[in-house]
Amino acid sequence: MNARRALLLPSALALGYAFLYLPIVSLIVFSFNASRLVTVWDAAHSPTLRWYVELLHNDQILSAARLSLGIATLNATAAVILGTAAGFALARFGRFRGRGLLSALTTAPLVMPEIITGLSLLLLFISMQQLLGWPARRGAATITLAHISFSVSYVAIVVQARLAGFDHSLEEAALDLGARPAQVFRRITLPLIAPALLSGWLLSFTLSWDDVVISQFVAGPGSSTLPMVIFSKVRLGVSPDVNALATLLITLVAAGVVGSTLWLQRREQRRGSEMRQAVTEE
């Protein structure tokens, strides 16, 4: 009875992980399959790198990937700057005019259905075009602006949570010792929130890199991001070069996530031991 119960939770966990990883594994396995019928294993000619080679010659996918890479990078950088400002104001400024509005505007996009965000941003760009004449045509610029507008919230939340975990005392001590606010921010606050900035940047990058719904609303003709190209391809059914692309992307992302997690962990451990050292030296 007890042994059976002890197995209950771990087997639920194993089942859950199987559910999470089975599709990813099958995606990777079938990317090496020679048959065009993605899910039928052609044992005679597999494994093969055929689809990877075809991928490298697919200009549509390559140029979409370049566009997505540019948009995601620009988006993540801008979102980190704006989001840090918002998160810092919310965590450190106490009461100020517009606090309620800023707080609501940083959390609302997180729960807004994408379809509504996409529709409303498209209508904004159309209205702007009528009133200001800009943007003359929709494309990379409008996609980037749309992505920044929802990424800011994620960064703001991460930064705010990180700052809430540290008390004010370090910053106040520096201010008491005569440091200027900008100096305090650069020398004390920024190093403290660096992990939040990194995860905020990566999160914004990923959100932009993966987004299909909002991009589809605000993109114009001739500016297709990688997810848009994939989406229109897979709506017609499975295709082996998408599997090859997926395998490449998943490998890259997994390496990046594992690497940055390990880096952050080591950094926190070092900080912890330095803090302990500082305390014992006193």
Binding site: I24, S26, L27, T39, V234, G237, A246, L249, I250, V257
Partner: peptide
């Protein structure tokens, strides 16, 4: 980390993977 990892990889591609499993 094993729970979060799939979340970082493309949502679209993970949904696409199910077509291959279910069709």
């Amino acid at each position: 980390m094993a729970i979060i990892l799939p979340f970082w990889t493309s949502f679209l591609l993970r949904v696409y993977a199910w077509i291959g499993l279910l069709q």
